[in-house]
């Protein structure tokens, strides 16, 4: 079984893991079948506001155990272990964490049969359970991991290789070659896509420095290269260096030049609440180049450790090599302080499966203090 990133051991999730939490209460909402992220965020906040006692008032709460597995999520009373709630995993629509609050949204049943009118939408009654825990984010990540493991299992049972889902979709764009790097799989996994709400003072910048994802990137958009210490973005705790910024307040940044992405971030300066759509990515990406023989062309050019051009559809591009990225490692050996000639030598000799770790050169310059970040 392929490992799915998250806080839990894969095997443990099959059997079920337990987290302690305080149950604050439940409420119901009516929702369409697959609402957009902004609607889901409003729903989660609405559920929290309805259940949470106002500041200064006593909050009724019950100690519970949350049982999470790839089959179900159960809420058990902490003392008697009696099941208060039990939801099959496929009926859970989404999980949200807001600070120390966790909101679980489960679909109950069709609230209204679809009307014959063309524009009618199926409506669902959602039951929303609200919990408090210092580990709200961790629990949300564990439930997200259970979603992902269950989904992969579902694909496998349907005769689809989960690792091939992304590769099959990519055929039109890159020809019949296979993609070896995990980018597509990573980008198409909804677990990695997040909607983050950042609260800030009016006139205050978000406190992010942006760079380009690099020519050849499967998701051409701005990448977070640095976070201003103490700035709204860092304070939110939800962003990290390497994350792709795909939209701001619902406006897509994908495919736009860096200057346009920066302008879009500057534009929200006057607002007090900003919604960012991000795809969480590590700052360093790994490209895997399958090169059966050392005589086969690698398909990219390097200048002082930085990739400066790429052969479209070549083995390097398919493996995840991106223009404008600095090579950090080749087959596990750091090359950050290696002379250009030696890097070329290492690349020329490397064959069979070449693992190359890279990061945007601009991010590297910021992280190593060679350049001062311009925070937006």
């Amino acid at each position: 079984l392929q490992e799915v990133p998250g806080p839990c051991d894969h095997e443990d999730l099959l059997d079920g893991v337990i987290f302690g939490a305080k149950y604050l209460g439940s409420t119901q909402l009516v929702s369409e079948r697959n609402p957009p992220p902004s609607t889901r965020m409003a729903q989660a906040r609405e559920a929290m506001d309805r259940v949470k006692a106002p500041e200064g008032e006593t909050q009724p709460m019950t100690e519970v155990d949350l049982f999470v597995s790839t089959k179900r999520v159960k809420v058990l009373t902490a003392d008697s272990q009696e099941a208060m709630m039990d939801h099959a995993l496929q009926t859970i629509s989404y999980i949200a964490d807001i600070g120390n609050v966790l909101v679980l949204m489960a679909r109950r049943r069709l609230a209204r049969r679809p009307a014959p009118q063309a524009h009618s939408r199926q409506l669902y009654r959602m039951i929303c359970h609200v919990f408090h825990s210092e580990d709200a984010q961790l629990i949300a990540q564990a439930i997200g991991q259970a979603f992902s493991v269950a989904y992969r299992q579902f694909l496998r049972e349907s005769g689809i290789d989960p690792s091939q889902v992304g590769a099959q979709q990519s055929l039109g764009a890159t020809g019949p070659g296979h993609l070896h790097n995990g980018d597509l799989d990573h980008f198409s996994n909804s677990e990695n896509c997040r909607e983050v709400c950042i609260e800030k003072r009016r006139g205050e910048g978000l406190g992010v420095a942006l760079v380009e994802s690099g020519w050849g990137s499967l998701l051409p958009t701005a990448v977070i290269a640095n976070l201003l210490h103490g700035g709204p973005a860092e304070r939110s705790g939800a962003l990290s260096i390497g994350d792709r910024l795909t939209a701001i307040n619902g406006t897509s940044l994908v495919g736009l030049p860096l200057a346009a992405c920066q302008a879009a971030v500057r534009e929200v300066k006057s607002q007090t609440l900003v919604t960012l759509s991000i795809i969480h990515c590590p700052p360093v990406t790994t490209a895997i180049i399958r090169r059966p023989h050392a005589r086969e062309q690698l398909g990219f050019c390097v200048e002082d450790g930085i990739i400066c051009s790429l052969l479209r559809g070549g083995i390097a591009e398919r493996g995840g090599v991106r223009v404008g990225h600095r090579i950090i490692e080749i087959n596990g050996h750091s090359v950050v302080a290696t002379p250009h000639a030696r890097i070329i030598e290492l690349l020329t000799e490397a064959h069979v499966e070449v693992h190359i770790k890279t990061m945007p050169a601009a991010t590297y310059r910021l992280l190593t203090g060679q350049e001062q970040p311009v925070y937006l």
Binding site: A88, R107, Q122
Partner: peptide
């Protein structure tokens, strides 16, 4: 505070109308 949402990919595959009651 920051709000993070993780959508269940199984949501799209569930039969319409099916759910817990």
């Amino acid at each position: 505070s920051a709000l993070t949402i993780t959508v269940n990919p199984m949501e799209k595959h569930e039969e319409p109308g099916h759910g817990e009651e």
